[in-house]
Design a protein around this nucleic acid. Structure first.
Length: 901
RNA sequence: GGGCGAAUAGCUCAGCUGGUCCAGAGCGCCUGCCUUACACGCAGGAAGUCGGGGGUUCGAAUCCCUCUUCGCCCACCA
């Protein structure tokens, strides 16, 4: 009583959350349980970029993980959530380059070593911001195991993997046309160059014959690349054009002669039938060029300005003066204008086409010939496919697995080299004396073959080349650590679908290849956070919601409630950035409801220890007690199942409704007199209420960790405990009791019916009405007896008469209503009644019943229904017919009694 | 261009293996209530031809086809 009286009527998360988080940390509750029998349950975090600031996407992703981890921890698993951050090569380098630009400098002004040091400084300064923010939303990560993808330990793993793949012949270096980002100045993998439809134009350009009049026409969307053309190709089976093979054309602008060749790359009957071949600026053309042993002139600089690479920065060659140094898009316009002037532009068609963009800066990517490092993926993909098909990894939702399978089936080699400075440097050394090229686990001092001096490759590795090792590199691999032995493979990976290929698929491949086992058995892919226009939330679009602002205003529990309660499997989560109250208000309201239920209960319980429910003899439990504990059993079972099936919305919603609709609105209301000592059985009511509240707090804890902990510890006897490690309640938390559920539901129906009538007739709130419940079965009569006090109080009833058979209401003015299983309710209204109104009400009800009855009778009258539908279904319909017939008759009698028309 | 998913109350969504929820929730809306836990509350209420059309079935929001509209993934057709 003393303690509870001090609680404010409004829950203040700010007073609770940081205090409890610090306490959890101090108690070491985030570390996996060391209990002997505890089976591990492991999640590795999708490492946020080290310079990231928490956004809603993180909020969602990490809330989901925390819910799962907390659930399994309470179930007794040795739950381990491994946190960490990603060095995010391109992204982080871009950030620091931008800072330098503000100082008027480029990374080249600093030089490699100084630049990398500068990035490190930035990372050290910003590095754990996001991890601190994860704490603010309640994430129960084991911070003692925090990793960073550029840590020495991670570097060892990266290096080991690179060298092993090299030794296995799965890594090679070669000239290929790759996706080049002219802004980031680096190559990208296929996955990092994202398609986006762009309104563009298809230019039809005439290439005149060198030795005669006439021309051929080729179409291109990128006219500027024509300066790199080395041939025009036709289909070998193209009877009309085939004879032209061997003749020469003048490449306009560059004014060079190029041959007509035949290659199957050209599809017969498509377009003009002639295709320009630009081997250095188109991946397909590169293959054509190889087949025909053609030159590969590069006509753009690294930042996509026009220049003939062979001339080393001087104008001329393939790029004549007027175009030299022009940006590629400027050059496109200028070249088109020049062609037009010469009469070589046949026509221009506008069209929508897919153009690849850099996934980091959205710049249009330029296909460009360069020397890069690749991983041969097919041998890695095959086992992953097999594992998937054998069911060793499953995706939720399932259809994402199809995407995974499709991608693996058509997998292409992975370009892993980046022309950046921030990242894991390619561990390959070149001997300056004998030319030996080797991948090494340790930095060499001299060439192992000839002792000559060596230098290391300049490139760094794709960020994802460290991320794909995350599930085991974080656990100590390549060393045989106890963590690795105990916690690998992990259990569930929780992430967004857009990184299935970047990350998820590659982790599966790496896990199988290097450890022989898939890194997790389940991939849970949640939706994307969007605004009310269904646009993905992002800082750049300005439609984001700052999760920390939400935490400040509504509390972390409200934030978590909002994202989980909206999270059905496979759907996106929609939040309104302009109306935080709509999005987060209900979470806040629920927390407050919980808080006040706690206040009521705590004041009733006092400080004395409450005996366990098991100690209460069954015969001392009242109807309400039996009902609420039976409901608890159902709810605990359902909540568990929802969590096991990743239905987080239902996992939160089920205890939510139980707490609010059943426990608060009915159970607590029903036991108030007992708690106040105005009715017998207060001691039992306290035990039951304390038990149910305790268990529902546990059920709610994964979703709303703070408030549940705060209230849990205030329960008598729990001051020194933590709900984090309280045992998860299953169906055994209650006592299934179908009779009690049915009887209590009947009592509720009586109360509801009276309330409806009171509202219908505008009976003054304070006024008591007399009621008669008739046509009762003995069981129903007993139920009313058991719940009499509750009915009288909650329905504000002045007199309650029960009649097992037919009751006579001659001369009494009131309203009738029908109750379940043929029972009837009469509410004496005296002057409050409006006969016309009651007639209308009953008339409408009868019309509705007549309609339903007609439908059922039609169904029962159908021979085929009786013949083909299962017997139990037929019986059910027949039962409905009986009941509804009785109801209709009853209503008819009432109508007659009231003298309705 | 290929593959896939979704269309249910004003909004955001549930409805898991066709027949009890004559279709539900939260928010919003309307009507009463400051009832000694809570107005971030209590009680009551209005509101949907379950996208259009066709089909299978005794029976469909739930299965099939088709159309329309959104969305996602993949894609070298110049």
């Amino acid at each position: 009583m003393s303690d509870a009286a001090a609680l404010a009527p409004q829950y203040a998360p700010a007073d609770v959350e940081s205090r409890l988080y610090a306490d959890w940390q101090a108690r070491g509750l985030f570390a996996p349980s060391a209990a002997p029998g505890a089976k591990p349950y492991v999640i590795v975090i999708p490492p946020p970029n080290v310079t990231d600031v928490l956004h809603m996407g993180h909020g969602l992703n990490n809330t989901v993980q925390d819910v799962l981890i907390r659930f399994e921890r309470m179930r007794g698993r040795a739950a381990l959530w491994v946190p960490g951050t990603d060095h995010a090569g391109i992204a982080t380098q871009n950030v620091v380059e931008k800072l330098l630009a503000a100082e008027g400098k480029t990374r080249f002004d600093l030089g490699r070593a100084a630049f990398v040091e500068r990035v490190w400084a930035h990372v050290r300064q910003k590095g754990d911001t996001i991890l601190q923010q994860l704490k603010a939303i309640g994430c129960s990560c084991d911070w003692s195991r925090t990793r960073f993808t550029l840590d020495p330990a991670m570097s060892r793993a990266v290096r080991e993997v690179f060298v092993r793949l090299w030794e296995e012949g799965l890594i090679y270096r070669g000239y290929r046309v790759i996706h080049w980002c002219p802004r980031c100045h680096t190559a990208l993998s296929d996955e990092e160059a994202e398609h986006a439809d762009v309104e563009g134009a298809l230019y039809y350009i005439r290439y005149p014959f060198a030795d005669s009049a006439g021309h051929v026409t080729v179409a291109t969307t990128r006219p500027e690349t024509m300066l790199g053309d080395v041939a025009i190709a036709v289909n070998p089976d193209d009877a009309e054009r085939r004879p032209l093979v061997g003749r020469h054309l003048i490449l306009p602008i560059a004014e060079l002669e190029i041959p007509i060749i035949a290659d199957q790359h050209v599809e017969a009957g498509f377009g003009t039938g002639f295709v320009k071949i630009t081997p250095a600026h188109d991946a397909d053309d590169f293959e054509v060029g190889r087949r025909h042993d053609l030159a590969t002139p590069i006509v753009m600089t690294a930042d996509a300005r026009m220049a003939d690479a062979a001339l080393d920065g001087k104008p001329g060659g393939r790029v004549p003066a007027p175009f030299f140094g022009m940006d590629r898009f400027e050059a496109r316009k200028a070249i088109v204008a020049a062609l037009k002037e010469k009469g070589l532009l046949e026509k221009v068609e506008t069209r929508l086409h897919a153009v690849r963009h850099c996934y980091r800066c959205d710049t249009v990517v330029e296909p460009r010939l360069s020397e890069q490092w690749f991983v041969t993926m097919e041998p890695l993909a095959a086992p992953a496919l097999e594992a998937y098909r054998k069911g060793e990894v499953r995706f939720i939702p399932e259809r994402r697995g199809d995407e995974f399978e499709q991608w693996l089936t058509g997998i292409r080699d992975w370009n892993i080299s980046r022309q950046l400075w921030w990242g894991h440097r390619v561990p390959v050394w070149y001997c300056e004396k004998c030319g030996l090229v080797s991948a090494l686990r340790e930095d060499p001092t001299a060439c192992p073959a000839c002792g000559g001096p060596m230098h290391q490759d300049e490139d760094v590795l794709d960020t994802w080349f460290s991320s794909w090792l995350w599930p085991f590199s974080t656990l100590g691999w390549p060393q045989a650590t106890t963590d690795l032995a105990r916690y690998y493979p992990t259990d569930v990976l929780v992430t967004a679908p857009e990184i299935i290929f970047f990350w998820v698929a590659r982790m599966i491949m790496a896990g199988l290849h290097f450890l022989g086992r898939v890194p997790f058995h389940t991939v849970y892919l949640h939706g994307t956070v969007r605004d009310t226009d269904h646009v993905k939330m992002s800082k750049s679009l300005g439609n984001g919601i700052d999760p920390l602002e939400v935490v400040r205003r509504y509390g972390a529990d409200a934030l978590r409630f909002a994202v989980t309660s909206g999270l059905a499997v496979g759907t996106d989560i929609i939040l309104d950035p302009h109306d935080l109250d709509t999005s987060f208000g209900s979470g806040r309201n629920f927390a407050n409801k919980l808080w006040n239920v706690g206040r009521l209960l705590l004041s009733a319980l006092g400080d004395a220890p409450v005996p366990p429910l098991a100690r209460v003899p069954a015969e001392r439990l009242g109807l309400a007690d039996r009902w609420i504990t039976s409901r608890l059993a159902t709810v605990a079972g359902e909540t568990t199942e929802h969590l096991e099936k990743f239905r987080l919305n239902d996992a939160v919603g089920t205890p939510y409704h139980f707490l609010w609709d059943d426990f608060a609105d009915w159970y607590l209301e029903s036991i108030k007199p007992r708690l106040r000592g105005e009715a017998p059985g207060g001691d039992v009511a306290r035990v039951v209420a304390a038990h149910v509240f305790d268990r529902v707090l546990r059920l709610l804890h994964p979703g709303m960790p703070f408030i549940t902990e705060e209230l849990f510890r205030r329960l008598p006897g729990h001051a020194a405990d933590s709900i984090m490690v309280a045992r998860w309640p299953g169906p055994e938390a209650g006592r299934a009791d179908p009779d009690a559920e049915r009887d209590f539901a009947f009592a509720q129906a009586v109360v509801n019916a009276v309330r409806e009538i009171r509202a219908e007739y505008g009976v003054k709130p304070g006024l008591e009405v007399a009621i008669v419940v008739s046509r009762l079965s003995p069981r129903q009569a007993a139920a009313i007896d058991a719940a009499r006090e509750m009915i009288v109080r909650l329905a504000k009833v002045g007199g309650l008469e029960t009649v097992e058979g037919e009751a006579s209401f001659t001369g009494r003015i009131g309203s009738h209503a029908l109750l379940p299983d043929g029972a009837e309710l009469f509410v004496a209204l005296g002057d409050a009644i409006d006969v016309a109104k009651e007639c209308a009400r009953l008339g409408a009800e009868r019309a509705r019943l007549d309609q339903q009855l007609a439908a059922v009778r039609a169904k029962l009258g159908t021979e085929s229904f009786r013949a083909r539908a299962p017997a139990e279904v037929v019986a059910r319909e027949a039962d409905k017919e009986r009941q509804w017939t009785a109801k209709v008759d009853a209503i008819a009698a009432k109508l007659a009694a009231l003298g309705c028309a």
